[in-house]
């Protein structure tokens, strides 16, 4: 197969269903500490689907508010800025993730389920470690595999060669993507983030989520997304043909001071959280 580079896939990125304008606006402000709830309200209030999603999520077990939320104002009061960010971004992302990925052999909705699982796991890990469980991490985790949407066609065509390297050559899946196609899904995801003007922190966490760059080791957001993704992969739900063919890097454990037993505790905490997060799969797809 002829190897390709980033320039080659730019037209493919352009042909992706774009994020709704509201979501793009909100993501661009994620890293801006000045943005307050009032500005978010102004963005949200004219979008009936988004409003419906906010009410739905406010009443879901995931956020677990003690009483039923009936109005947008009430919801915003309970949720706070970070959670509001999460709902708006998740609503926008559902449409993007709506399709199948035949190259990776993912049925419709499976990449979305994996993405939400990773975001939920990232929250569990950050709370366990006592680091902020904010919308920045949630978004980076939710969008970490966005590059698969584009690379899917190329993986489909290079399937036999990639699988031979994984099965017989001891290549991790993204290493095989690079060896055969010339680029991997993390790098493609980073480019999508660039094209869509995501904040740099999110772009880098997506691009580094398999820790292929030495820069990744200094990037806490990338390390958290990597660990969340890896733990979800270990569990085995909603995986494609790449399955568990990814590398565990021991120094991530050292970096966060973790042992195998801690990973097991995180998995035990994750599962009930995931049951509460089911409402993410009932978000309205229309925009």
């Amino acid at each position: 197969m002829m190897k390709i580079d980033i320039a080659h896939i730019l037209p493919d990125i352009k042909s992706l269903p774009p994020f709704p304008e509201v979501t793009q606006k909100v993501i661009a402000t994620l890293d801006d500490p000045e943005v307050g709830i009032q500005e978010l309200v102004e963005i949200v209030q004219y979008d009936p689907n988004l409003t419906a999603n906010i009410l739905k999520m406010s009443n879901s077990a995931y956020f677990g508010f003690p009483r039923e939320v009936h109005s947008l104002n009430q919801a915003l009061l309970y949720l706070g800025t970070q959670n509001l960010f999460k709902i708006i971004i998740a609503s926008g992302a559902t449409r993007l993730y709506g399709r199948c990925c035949n190259g990776y052999i993912l049925d419709q909705g499976e990449l979305w389920r994996h993405s939400v699982s990773t975001a939920v796991m990232a929250s569990v890990i950050s709370r366990w470690l006592g680091v902020p469980d904010g919308a920045l991490l949630f978004t980076a985790a939710l969008l970490h595999d966005i590059g698969k949407l584009v690379l899917d066609y190329y993986v489909h065509d290079a399937f036999t060669e990639i699988m031979a390297l994984v099965k017989e050559g001891n290549y991790a899946f993204q290493e095989a993507e690079r060896a055969v196609i010339g680029i991997d899904h993390a790098a493609v995801g980073g480019e999508i983030a660039r094209q869509w003007n995501f904040p740099d922190k999110i772009r880098l966490a997506i691009a580094y989520h398999h820790l292929e760059s030495p820069e990744a080791l200094k990037n806490d957001l990338a390390l958290l997304v990597y660990l969340a993704d890896l733990l979800v992969i270990i569990l085995g739900a909603n995986l494609g043909v790449d399955g568990l063919a990814y590398r565990g890097h021991p120094w991530v454990m050292k970096h966060f001071g973790l042992r195998v037993r801690h990973l097991e505790q995180l998995l035990a905490l994750f599962w009930p959280e995931m049951q509460k997060a089911q409402e993410f799969f009932n978000l309205d797809f229309r925009v």
């Binding site: 568990l244 990814y246 565990g248 195998v260």
Partner: peptide, 14 residues
């Protein structure tokens, strides 16, 4: 079951 990721150091061998 009992699948494994690629783990040289047995840190992730759940």
């Amino acid at each position: 079951g009992g699948s494994q990721i690629m783990d040289s150091g047995c840190f992730f061998n759940i």
